[in-house]
Computed example of a mutant assay.
Amino acid sequence: MPGDGHVDEILDDLDRTLGRGASYAEIFARWERQQWSATDLDFARDRDDWTALGPDRQRYLRWVLTQFFQGEEAVTVSLAPFVDAAPLPEQRVALATQLVDEARHAVFFQRVFGDVVGLDGSSSLGEALSAIGLDVTPGSRLLFDEVLGAATERLRSDHSPDALVRGVTVYHLLVEGTVALAGQRHVLDWLRREGLFPAMGEGFTHVTRDESRHVNLGVLILRDAVAADAALSDAIVETVLTSIPAVLGTLEPPDGDDAYYEAFGFTREDVAVWAFDSLRRKLSAVGVTVDGI
């Protein structure tokens, strides 16, 4: 079925596509082929798995899921200015498909919190987001509210190539291509190893496939921008370097407790190494080198 592909196969396919290059038409066609429904997933078995997980791992997994849920809502409300600022109609069409994806992802995580975690007050998306608000860690708020928020706010009134390149660097390369894909890869690897949460795993796989397509789009937009004006590569480098502390901040668990990672068979360093290796591959596909990462 569509959600069954192993996460590493999805990510390897992304790297191959970045290596050969993709077109906006190909990205749109992939979006049409890769549709899925967040409301059709059956979480009955997942609820049993959650109960059997025990209080400690429930607390650790809830933290992971909270950061994803808050992040998906943040990127959903951030994307419209990117659509407006994109100079080419093909870019605007592709970004519009991404906006639909991000909304679907937010609904998926709302269902996870309502049907699996058993979150009180999750009958509406707004209520669910309010209920998890206190569990969002400072690192996530820094990246999503401040760094991405500032890039988005600038794009509302400034449609210059510089503003768009900086925004896409934050959104597509750092938020999605570095933080999100790293987290998704490790969560999905744990779910497969343990044989747990089948519906959550299916949804996470779909989300990862969507995010890989978004990253492909962001790399293409940046590559086109740099090809048109080589000086814009400096904007990419500067944005990456100034945003690294926020990226690292998203990896900080509550109270610095690495049990939030180790309970699932990996370490914080494992995630960080994979994340920055991924970032370097995306930057290479754009044609930019950032020393020091």
Rank of each mutant, 00 (worst) to 15 (best):
L251S: 07
R111I: 11
Y24M: 09
L220I: 06
A25V: 13
D291Q: 13
E194N: 00
G71C: 08
D291F: 10
V116P: 01
A151E: 03
G292W: 05
V112Y: 08
E146A: 13
R111S: 12
H172N: 15
V175L: 05
V247F: 08
I10E: 09
P55F: 12
D46L: 04
L148Y: 00
R45Y: 11
V219R: 00
D101N: 10
S278M: 09
Q70P: 07
Y260M: 00
H159M: 07
L142K: 13
E32N: 10
A272H: 03
A38P: 12
R45C: 11
R281W: 06
S233P: 09
E194P: 01
D277T: 12
T51D: 14
D258G: 03
T66P: 07
T289I: 12
F28T: 14
R59A: 15
L251P: 07
R280I: 06
R166E: 15
F204W: 04
A227E: 11
G218D: 09
L18C: 06
A131K: 05
L248P: 05
L279D: 00
D49I: 01
G265H: 06
R57E: 13
S278Y: 08
L79M: 14
A163R: 02
D115I: 07
P198G: 05
S278D: 13
D115S: 13
F68W: 10
G167S: 01
Y260Q: 02
A85E: 04
A22M: 14
L11F: 11
V147M: 00
V83L: 03
Y171M: 04
S157K: 12
E269Y: 08
S123F: 13
D40V: 03
G19M: 06
V187Y: 12
R59Q: 14
A263Y: 10
A231K: 03
I10L: 10
A272Q: 09
G183M: 04
S78L: 09
A106M: 10
T76Y: 15
A151L: 01
A103L: 13
F68C: 03
F276M: 03
K282C: 10
A163G: 03
F82T: 11
L148E: 02
V168D: 07
I27C: 09
H105A: 07
T76S: 15
L220K: 08
S140Y: 15
A225I: 06
V247M: 04
D48Y: 10
G167I: 00
L129K: 02
V187K: 07
A44P: 06
L61K: 05
L18N: 05
T76L: 12
G21S: 10
Q70A: 15
F69M: 05
L129N: 04
F144R: 13
F276Y: 08
S140W: 14
A44W: 10
T51N: 12
L11Y: 07
G21W: 12
A199Y: 02
T239N: 05
Y261I: 01
D255G: 12
A151W: 02
A22N: 11
